[in-house]
Amino acid sequence: MGLLNRLNDPYEGGGFALGTVEDILNWGRSKSDWYLQFGLACCAIEFMAVNAPHFDFMRFGTIPRTSPRQADFIIISGTVTLKMAERIKRLYEQMSEPKYVISMGSCSNCGGPYWEHGYHVLKGVDRIIPVDVYVPGCPPRPEALEEGMILLQKKIKHEAIFNKRKRIAEEDRKLGLNYQSNI
């Protein structure tokens, strides 16, 4: 947008900036995402270290919220077991749109070290909820999680808000995915 580059230009009666409403809304949404305070296993300790002063997660505009009704996104950090999977699905359904999911660590990406003989482990949280960003590692370094957050911010910035279905269908047709739709 370049809005901040024009602060020293002399415009009479204030300044005008040209842009789309969607850009401004997406800019605001991506820089102040609030997450649900939720940690499962070892990756949750690394997540606490990211919040601590050395790595400082709050500079991305994120604040922990305790209730899923007030949260924008959720970070699944740790192994998802079959007993816990139903509760995670219910937490995800309680969040209101628009909502995003970051899957942190090997265990929630694909089952992790327990993929072969774990009879009680869900092999990847994307079997029950849709995931936006995958962060690999066991546990991932704090810098890797911060890169995951930056990728999520980029994804939100380029999201369509108005006429969403029609524009997504047009993009897919340009990529060569022709499917039947009644738009």
Binding site: Y114, E116, G118, H120
Partner: peptide, 14 residues
């Protein structure tokens, strides 16, 4: 309890 039961003892046998 049991929400994080990751089958550690079964893995050790194999």
């Amino acid at each position: 309890v049991g929400y994080l039961h990751r089958c550690f003892e079964k893995h050790c046998e194999k």
